[in-house]
Simulated assay, not measured.
Amino acid sequence: MTEYLDTPAGRRIAYRFRDGQGPGIVFLGGFRSDMTGTKAEWLDDRARKQGRAFLRFDYSGHGASAGRFEDGCIGDWLADAHAVIQAVTQGPQVLVGSSMGGWIAILLARAMPDRIAGLVTVAAAPDFTEQGFWAGFDDKQRQALMATGRVALPSDYGDEPYVISRRLIEDGRDHLVMDRPLTLLCPVRMFQGTADRDVPVDWALRLLDHATGPDIRLTLVKDADHRFSTPECLQLIGQGVDDVVA
């Protein structure tokens, strides 16, 4: 059942929580995705069968949560995640972050290390506003973004074009993780498909090289795409969760 939380920042966030044993699992979705995607549904069902607590939610401007997508930024979505985790869950949590959710998970691990029992990332995209969008814009797009505050990009998934805001880019620079030391003391399991057209394999390799910690592992899956939602890929994610829980 979908419930709603009014955050300290005044945003209304939709979430679904299943009570159970700890450590709980928190699913952090990707850019322009929602909590009803294949990975979220599969992980929720798996947690139900294990009797484990599970939380999934929509960032503001995503899915069933209030707000406009183009008004949001990494800082807002990080605050949404922090507020829901603090309000709804208890004790240590394993964060499962998909794409942008991997970036959010890393930021949460840095902000609330005492609450994080482990990280599992799928096609993690830290700093994608800078190393993805801004680096990929041509001069005309950069000029339009700075002059008008927005630029529209075509979707690779058949949707309407989506807007990238100047606020998203500038706020992203305040939350970069690849330009400073990154220590992750909890166990970390990262998964990356070699056929991912949205997050290059090089990003995963650079993140592995950049992060320091006692137990960080990266698994590359040949020919897996960005969705990483085949039965085999889902099983890998589940094994990663079990690994960090253990």
Rank of each mutant, 00 (worst) to 15 (best):
C233G: 01
A79V: 09
D171G: 12
P231Q: 04
F57G: 03
P200E: 07
P200C: 06
C233Q: 14
D58W: 04
L145E: 02
E130A: 06
E170C: 11
R115M: 08
P231W: 11
R12C: 13
T38A: 01
L43P: 04
K222W: 13
R197S: 12
F57A: 02
V241H: 01
T148F: 07
I164N: 02
W77I: 03
R18M: 09
D243Q: 07
D34S: 10
H62F: 08
D179P: 00
A79M: 08
A14Y: 07
K222N: 15
Y59P: 05
F57L: 02
A144G: 08
M100L: 13
L168C: 09
G102E: 01
G132E: 10
P126K: 05
G72M: 03
D58V: 09
S99L: 04
M100I: 07
D58Q: 06
D215C: 13
D159Y: 07
G37P: 13
W134M: 13
G24Q: 04
W203S: 06
A40L: 09
S98P: 07
E70S: 08
D225H: 14
A152D: 13
R52S: 01
D215H: 15
E41D: 07
L182P: 05
K39A: 05
G172V: 01
V26K: 01
R166M: 06
M112Q: 15
G61P: 08
Q131E: 10
Q192K: 10
T121I: 01
W203V: 10
L153M: 13
A144R: 15
E70W: 02
M112D: 04
D179W: 04
I104K: 04
Q50V: 02
G118E: 07
M178N: 04
L205R: 14
R217Q: 11
D243C: 06
G72D: 02
C233E: 09
P92I: 00
V122D: 01
Q192P: 13
F191Q: 06
C73I: 02
R167A: 08
